[in-house]
C-alpha cells in the first residue's frame, strides 16, 4: 500500500504534448470527502495496475452542477457547467470515467445541450470491461469469498441510466454471495441524498430515508453493503453507524472491493 499512486493532470499531459486514454472525473465528493477520497484512490490504483493512461483535471475541475440544477438554481448550474465544458473542450477530452453517478448523469445527459459532447462511462462499467477483457484478474479465494454482500442501486446509475448489470457482474467475480434487497434494480430505493437533499436537513417526517434503506439491507444480514456512489456511501455508512453495526457491516464502493480482494 506504500506505492505512490501515479496520478497526473490533464495539464501535465498537455505540457508533454500527450493525451491520456481517458479522463477520470473525480467530482466534489471524490476530491474532498474523506471517505470518498478512498474510493478515488482505490480506483486510481486499479487504473495504475492495469496500465491505463488516465488524467484528472485537478484544480481545473468544478462541480458538474447537478445539485444546483436539481435544487432549481439554473444560473449556478449553467455557470459551473459552461466553465467545465470550456475546460474539457480546451483539452479536447473525448472519453470520461467517473465514480459518481450524479456527475456521470450530468456529463452524459445534460452537457450535450450546452455544447459538451463526450463519451461518458461510470467506473463500474469500466471495471466490468476490464474484468471481461481479462485485464483485471480476481485473486481466487480472496478476502470476500463466501461473504454476504448486498448491492444498493444508486438512482442515477440504476433507474435513471439503466445500468444494473455491470456492477453486479463485478460483484460476481468476487466469489461472494450476492443477496438482493426486495427493492432493487428498477425498484431500488433511494438513499435519500439525491435532488440536493444531501445539502439540507430532511423535511419533517417519521423516519430518515437512509434508515429506511439500511433497515431493508440489515434484514438480509449482510457482511457488506456495496455501493457505486459517494453520496450513497455516506448515507449508508451513516445508517450503519446509527444502528451501531459499523463493526459487523462494512459499506464499500465496488472499486474498493476489487482493491482489497487483489491486495493492491
Amino acid at each position: 500500500m506504500q506505492d505512490k499512486l501515479n496520478i497526473e493532470t490533464m495539464a501535465d499531459y498537455a505540457a508533454r504534448g500527450e493525451e491520456p486514454e481517458i479522463l477520470f472525473w473525480v467530482g466534489c465528493a471524490g476530491s474532498f470527502d474523506a471517505r470518498a477520497q478512498k474510493v478515488s484512490m482505490a480506483f486510481c490504483k486499479i487504473l495504475n495496475e492495469v496500465g491505463i493512461k488516465f488524467a484528472i483535471l485537478g484544480n481545473e475541475e468544478s462541480c458538474t452542477g447537478d445539485p444546483a440544477r436539481r435544487a432549481g438554481n439554473e444560473f449556478v448550474f449553467q455557470m459551473t457547467a459552461l466553465q467545465n465544458i470550456e475546460t474539457l473542450n480546451m483539452y479536447k477530452v473525448k472519453k470520461i470515467v467517473t465514480a459518481c453517478p450524479h456527475c456521470f448523469n450530468t456529463l452524459k445527459n445534460e452537457y450535450p445541450a450546452l455544447g459538451g459532447h463526450y463519451d461518458v462511462i461510470h467506473h463500474t462499467q469500466l471495471l466490468q470491461e476490464l474484468i471481461d477483457g481479462g485485464r483485471i484478474k480476481m485473486t481466487e479465494g480472496g478476502t470476500f469469498k463466501g461473504k454476504r454482500i448486498t448491492y444498493h442501486d444508486s438512482c442515477y446509475l440504476g433507474r435513471v441510466n439503466g445500468v444494473y448489470e455491470a456492477p453486479r457482474k463485478v460483484l460476481e467475480q468476487l466469489d461472494t454471495q450476492l443477496v438482493e434487497m426486495k427493492r432493487c434494480k428498477t425498484n431500488g430505493l433511494c438513499c435519500g441524498a439525491g435532488g440536493a437533499q444531501m445539502f439540507k436537513e430532511d423535511e419533517p417526517g417519521k423516519k430518515r430515508i437512509n434508515m429506511e434503506r439500511i433497515d431493508e439491507a440489515m434484514e438480509l444480514k449482510p457482511d457488506i453493503v456495496a455501493v457505486n456512489c459517494p453520496f450513497c456511501l455516506t448515507m449508508m455508512s451513516d445508517g450503519v453507524k446509527a444502528k451501531e453495526k459499523q463493526e459487523e457491516v462494512m459499506v464499500y464502493d465496488l472499486a474498493e472491493l476489487i482493491v482489497q480482494n487483489n491486495g493492491l
Binding site: L5, I7, T9, V26, C28, A29, G30, S31, F32, Q37, S40, M41, C44, I56, G58, N59, E61, S62, C63, G65, P67, A68, V76, M79, T80, Q83, M198, F199
Partner: peptide, 18 residues
C-alpha cells in the same frame, strides 16, 4: 459552487488527495 467550484466550502486544493 459559484465561488470555489465545489459543493462544500473547502480550503484545500481539489487535487490534495492525490
Amino acid at each position: 459552487i459559484e465561488n470555489s467550484g465545489a459543493v462544500w466550502q473547502v480550503p484545500d486544493d481539489r487535487d490534495k488527495w492525490t
